[in-house]
């Protein structure tokens, strides 16, 4: 590009009258290194825009649906915690029915929960939550078994 053309284009650029194609020509002129002395101090402006265009998003930013497995993991953890809660509240041998235990029935059929509020996004944290919930549920179930065995022993002794 001729220097006179570049000067005219630059004036129009600052007035906001250039097309994208003309702006590309202007950038190419300033990148070329062959710049008229009158325009020699403008290249930093175009260098700035060129550098800004090189910025890339961190790899951590990605489409959300790839996190679905974690959502399932956290839902599983929440479900395990719910089972633990019901088991603790009603005891290991209690049978929950809709008619005999209205409170239990209400809790067994809770209002819809917005699980997204409790979504765990960190894989390690989700795994930890699930492991703790299952561990607690397991301990509680073992306690229930012990309780049942003790009850049976007492019944046998009473029958003797």
């Amino acid at each position: 590009m001729k220097h006179t053309t570049a000067k005219k284009l630059l004036d129009r650029y600052f007035l906001g009258e250039t097309t994208l194609e003309e702006e590309q020509q202007l950038r190419a002129y300033f990148r070329s290194g062959d710049i008229h002395p009158d325009l020699a101090l403008y290249p930093p402006l175009f260098t700035y825009w060129d550098e800004a265009a090189e910025i890339m998003a961190p790899v951590r930013i990605r489409p959300v649906h790839r996190r679905r497995p974690l959502r399932w993991l956290s839902v599983a953890a929440a479900a395990a915690a719910l089972i633990l809660g019901l088991n603790t509240w009603f005891g290991p041998t209690t049978v929950i029915t809709g008619t005999g235990f209205p409170i239990a029935a209400a809790q067994a059929e809770p209002a819809p929960i917005d699980w997204s509020k409790y979504e765990v996004t960190d894989p390690e944290e989700a795994y930890k939550v699930l492991r703790e919930a299952l561990g607690a549920a397991s301990a509680s179930l073992n306690k229930g078994t012990s309780f049942a065995v003790r009850e049976m022993v007492e019944v046998r002794q009473a029958l003797k």
Binding site: A57, P58, R60, I61, R62, V64
Partner: peptide, 30 residues
């Protein structure tokens, strides 16, 4: 993705904030 991040960065002028902005947008868009 990159264009969204650059735009967010231009507005908030902070890399972490820009990342959060884009992640929020992706959650809502999903």
């Amino acid at each position: 993705r990159d264009r969204l991040y650059r735009l967010a960065l231009r507005v908030v002028n902070d890399a972490d904030e820009a990342e959060d902005v884009v992640q929020d947008v992706l959650v809502k868009s999903w």
